[in-house]
Amino acid sequence: MDYALFLGCIIPNRYPGIELSIKKVAENMGFGLKDLPGASCCPAPGVFKSFDHATWLALAARNLVIAESLGADVVTMCNGCYSTLKETNKILKNDFGKRNEVNEVLKPFNKEFKGTINVKHLLEVLYNDIGLEKIKGMVKKPLNLKIAVHYGCHIVKPTKERENIKSAERPKFFDELVEVLGAKSISYKDKMMCCGAGGGVRAAYLDTALDMTREKLENAQEAGADCIVTPCAFCHLQLDRGQIEIRDRTGTSFNMPILHYVQLLGLALGLKPEELGLFNNAVPVDSVLKKIGT
């Protein structure tokens, strides 16, 4: 089965290691990925949806139409892209007035939203389409790590727009995807709390965003985590580069390695750290590699 890989902004333009990882992981696991030529910013839900609903919808529709032309479901590795594309896809599938409005705008470019594909988060592809059992069978290198999983917000919320999620308070699927790799998902205080970056807060009020990040990092550290693993590129950036920003402002160093889930999965599949772009984080992940003996 092939998926249309929606890159968004952070992955290709700040953390290409995550892009490299998904390519290697897909190859290794045997599913295909197609590029979405000419895709743009999703556009980011917290900000663009906050500015103008119609523009948000039209730009997202353009991205969805590119995927439709490939006949492949979209896969994303950023909770923000997921939220925008999943929600706009649903709006345009169900609201014909809005669909007509958008198609009017897209017409000069020979584009038309038809509603033929679905939008999935990578974790949904792994959990629902591939399944834990199969993943378990592919693990070459069980990871003896204590991991603080950070779901991020938009992968589970709002639940009224997430048909697979019953409660946002204690979801389990991400913990299971981490534990199937041999690692332990530890419990820590306020595990479901936001990283602080969303909604345009990182752009407008960096200190506030970083204070939330600090709290998350402290809680993970107190619980004895070897690293934090996230399924979201934006949380990844906030938790990783945020540590440098916190250090520069307050002098506090957490030295907490941050991995995107696709990188953790790659390690368990036996891929090399260089194939997963693991040396390109702001905070080094050497302690993690040492512990798993890579």
Binding site: N13, L36, P37, G38, A39, S40, T55, L59, F109
Partner: peptide, 21 residues
């Protein structure tokens, strides 16, 4: 990346949509 960054005509489309809105 194979996004608007590699396809100037795609960026134009995005800009036209923005203007229209």
């Amino acid at each position: 990346p194979p996004t608007v960054h590699a396809y100037p005509e795609a960026l134009k489309e995005v800009q036209e949509i923005i203007k229209k809105k």
